[in-house]
Design a binder for these strands. Sequence first.
DNA 1: TCAAGATGCGCG
DNA 2: AAAGCGCGCATCTTGA
Length: 629
Amino acid sequence: MSSEYLVLDVETIVNDNRFGSAIDPRNQLALACWKIDGKWKAKWGSEFEQQELVDDIRRAKFLVFHHGKYEYGWLSRIGVDTSQLLGFDTMLAEYVLLGNLVSGDTESGVRPTSISLDACCQRRGYRPKDPIVDTWMANGIKVSEMPKKWVLDRCIQDVRTTEQLFLDQRRQLHDSNRLGCLYTRCILTPLLAEIEKEGCHLDKNRVEEVYNEYSDRFTSLTKEFARATGGINWRSSKQVAKYLYDDLQFEELRDRSGEPKRTPSGGRQTNAKALEKLKAITEAQKEFLALKKQLSKIGSAISKNLDYFKDVCESHNGTFHAEFNQSITATHRLSSTGIAVETATKGSKSCQLTNIPRNFKRLFSARRDGWLIGEVDGAQLEFRVAAFLGNDKQARADIADREFDAHCVTASAMYEVPYTELRNAYLAGDKVASDRRQSAKPETFKPLYGGSKGTPAQERWYEAFKRRYPDLAAVQLGWVYEVLEKKYLTTPWGMRYYWPNIRMASSGYVNNASAIYNYPIQALATAEIIPIAITYLWHIVRAEGLDEVIVPINTVHDSLVCEIHPDYAADFRRIATEAFGLCVLRYLSVVYGLDFDVPLGAGIKIGEHWSEGTEERYECLKGNIERVK
DNA sequence: TCAAGATGCGCG
DNA sequence: AAAGCGCGCATCTTGA
């Protein structure tokens, strides 16, 4: 709430055909404009000529900027320790104020809300950006090719409107008890900027090996598929549907009323899940399903990852970069966008960091010779958060019971076998029990977020889930009633999520119910707790002077991945468990007033490649951290 | 030829 | 009548 802030905006010479992020060494800092103590300052110059800015930043209590990850990136390149800089990001403030409304609502046709500086200001009736400079920038004209005065005026104008916007947002967030949420978003930002700069590194030998294996497989599968089908394009859902349902005469899947299940716009389904359920009788039918399944898997692995990975290894020293988007998702977790690279033969390709196939994590190694990859993740995080939010006795008991096996509970309901019988058989290596547990896995958490329809076996489990966790079910239903009444939900930590078009049908069905069941749980787990945990981890590492030996390189919803010097693996374990346990509890208590009284767990893997090495599990309970065997 | 829409599939 | 949630990227289809 202090008035000792510094408002900052920078302009850059963009040489990456994108937005001039500090990640790309070809981009250059061109101009910084800032305001401190009511004084306006501007400095033309590169990252080596910004001493006055650095000095002023040191005097300020916090920074104000729009999309501060950009400025953090440049400040880091200037040489500033960005972990010591607190920011108020007006883009994130607008994001918090909008809650989930930022992404719009396709069902009711609500368009996404822009949170660009210009859009934020226009909504409030402030002066808009200069349209000419804006058009130039949007079309790749470099600021070094524009009249200096025009660029300067624009930069100063941005500082002015950013401050205006900040003051308005700060009041709104304060009055609605959401400053804490903004704080959580803002303290994560400099870490994200560091991760983006670091990049991810691939093991050339392993990539080559897997690439060759997949290519060979792909070549032979493509041939077989062409022979079997007479040459349809397996990637075309239209051609596949025609072949499946017209030529091979498969029966379409039907719902209970006998209507065929179709894609949203009425096409016949060809996705893996639907194909899995089709009943193949003839040899031709069986062969087609088997071929299509393998071809889709291999084909997508090649076109979405391996082509790109191979090029990264051959032409970019095995390192590639992606960005984190901090203001895209409805629940406020992160998303990621790959930075496209022109490959030698496959055109422009990119890879984001949150959906890398689990099988390919083993292709990632440390960029630094001889270093290790360490990963820490929040154990059963969403379920534990659900137990906390639902204050559910049974869920708490299940979490406390270290022998508890959720998937066996699912299988027990689906296959009508007593839990202990199934579990013992599974532990004894019984094939049937193991298969049942495996096939039950995807169903385990579906009812947590309102899943209710399916086969009789599935529906038996969904009902059993509701009976097993009645307190949670009641709390979730309470959320739905709250939204029906107020059109928005206020979470226990202050975040608000909005459903302006919620309605209840005469049947009692509520259109947004499953989203309402999900948001608080997904959000507390992956938009609050994990950001808090990884921010703490980063700060402890720096406070202990270990930032040269423990380097974050990725984060995926419930985890953080670091490169680690082999002598510091034990430090990583110690710091990670503390950050994911005690630090989170303390922060939730101090910033949000939440007494999070369900144990938090962390799983840690360290190895020469990502996701390799045996996992060590830790539990944090009542102020203690304990290693779990 | 291009952009937008549709579909499928990877992750947590 | 039916109904887990949240994303981004590659490819094909469609329509101008």
